[in-house]
Structures are given as C-alpha cells and as structure tokens.
Design a protein around this nucleic acid. Structure first.
Lengths: 149, 149
DNA sequence: TTAAAACTATACTAATTTGTCAAGATTAAA
DNA sequence: TTTAATCTTGACAAATTAGTATAGTTTTAA
C-alpha cells in the first residue's frame, strides 16, 4: 500500500497555491522552484488538479493558479482521490481477477473485499477531516517554525 | 493510494494455506489453480511470504506450504507489510525530495508527513486487529456461503 | 502589433512493477 | 537408484507509472 508520487507532489503543489493567498496566484515556475519538481512535471500535476476542478488557471502574461474554492472547503481527500484514486474502487474484484474470474466466489474474496473496504473507509475519514487550511494553520503554529515568505 | 497486486494476491494465497488446515500443506499448483494466478507468479509471491517467515515450505515429493504460526496469531498487517511495504516509512522525506532536498523545511513538509503518518496509523490499527483466522471465520459464517472443498 | 510570460497538450523516454521462463535442487516412493 | 513431484532462483519480458521534451495557445503590456 503505497502513495504515488503524484499524490505526494500534488498535495504539496496545491498547498503552495493555497499559501499564496486569496486570488494572489502563483505560477508553475514558482511552484517548481519551491518544491524542487521540474516545470514540466509540475505542469502535468497541475493539469490533473485543474481537470478535477480543484484549481483554476489564469493564462497570459500575468497568469498563474488559484484555488477553485476556499482552502477550508477543500479536504485533502479530494486532492488525493484526484491524483491517485481510491484504495478500494468498484472495479476491485474485476481488477484482481484477470482470468474468467471463476475464483471470485463468496468463500474468500468477499471477506477480503470487506476488509479493504473498511481500510478505505478509515483512510477517507481522516482525509475528509483535514482541509488545506488545517494544514496551513497547523504549520504556522508548530513550535520552531516561522511563516516563510 | 493503491494496493499492489502482490498485496492482494499474497493475502489470498496465504489464506489458502491457512484454510488448508493444521500441518496439512498445500502446493503451488493447487493455490495457483484455485486463485487463477500462474504457477510462476504464485511461486514468486510465496517466496516473499517465506522470506518474511510467514509460511514454511516443505520440499520434495510430498512437499507444500504451511503457515509458520497459527492463523489466529498472524495479523493481516504482517502479510501486507511483507508484500507491499508501509504507506509511511522512515525514508519518506528522502524519497519524495529527490533533489538536494532544499525544500524539506518545516514550513510544509513536516505537516504533510504528520498527515500521512496518521493515515498509516489508522490503517495499521485495522490490519493489526484482523487475523487470518478472523477472515476464515467470518467467511464461513457468512449467509449463503458454503465451505468449499 | 509584437514580444514576453504564462498555461496546454501530446508524444516520447526512463524507471518501476508485474508477470514469465527455464534450469536447478530436494525429497519420497517404487 | 531412478523417477516424479515438489520447491528455488535468477534472468528475462511485458505493462504500468513517472517524468521529460517540444510545439503549441492565450493574454498582457509596451
């Protein structure tokens, strides 16, 4: 059970956008430089976030990205699901029974499916309960940290 | 956030071994046939389980595999961790900061790390609390299911 | 109207994960 | 001791995911 790099990078990118502030906007080169991710890859990840209506792009010379909603209204779950999909999805059984799935009988598979589903539920509960604003707030109030310009 | 196929297949394979019963043993061809996984791939997955001391192989003509411990003493977490690793591991920061990691400062990265860590904790809690025996029991008592020979 | 600075899209390469193959080692029974 | 049924190993091939390159389009401001 692993996070994809897209999920990790994507969350960091959208946090940069959130931290840029209301309507301020931040560009791909800026995010790229701050996160140490290439411009091309940053663009690719932001595209996914945009197609999922998490961020809005402004084109042209003074363009950049802003959040599509207020940071306190964007739970981390939306970001993660956009970039990496869910642990348990409706195609679960089909996916893991590539053959004529004669083995997908109630004997074992359903139990296992239930188990993964409950794991998915626990993860969702946590990620739904944390918004981008929560992360920003928590960061600022952490001891020893300063708000970096 | 995805399960690897190894994790899903591996859990199913070890459940087949558990269901075979005390000291009974089950062979690669049998597991392969029952699960619809190729013999070669089954062998590869069982090898990982064996190297993680979850199962014991008996070689020779009447060989096969048995559990290394009682099914009620093997939590699912051990199986999953053996096959797919953990969501959050000690190399987390290094892994996701491939550059000279100049961006791994307390401003954002630590908060995100804490978030992933709490997700990992929730997943662990669930997977630690379910043993192979639990899955077998639950299966057998499910309505409409029969114990397949 | 031109040029710069930004985003957009698609195709391509590299790395990782999945899955296969083939040759070998071990054991039990005839 | 031979044979057949088993596990063991490492190299290989295929598929997926990660990341790059390139050739655009859009907008602003001079």
């Amino acid at each position: 059970m692993k996070l994809s790099t897209q999920e990790v990078y994507g969350l960091r990118c959208i946090l940069r956008i959130a931290q840029a502030g209301e309507g301020a906007g931040i560009t791909i080169p800026e995010i790229s430089e701050k996160e140490g991710i290439s411009k091309a890859y940053t663009a690719k990840i932001l595209r996914i976030l945009r197609l999922n209506n998490l961020i809005i792009s402004e084109r042209g010379k003074h363009g950049g990205y802003v959040l599509a909603d207020m940071p306190e209204k964007i739970p981390v779950s939306r970001v993660v699901n956009a970039l990496g999909g869910k642990l348990y999805e409706s195609d679960f059984c089909r996916k893991y029974h590539p053959e004529n799935n004669h083995v997908c009988d109630p004997l074992d598979t359903c139990t296992i499916r239930d188990l993964w589903f409950s794991v998915q539920h626990a993860v969702d509960e946590i990620l739904n309960g944390v918004t981008l604003q929560d992360i920003i707030n928590y960061t600022i109030t952490m001891p020893g940290t300063t708000t970096k310009k």
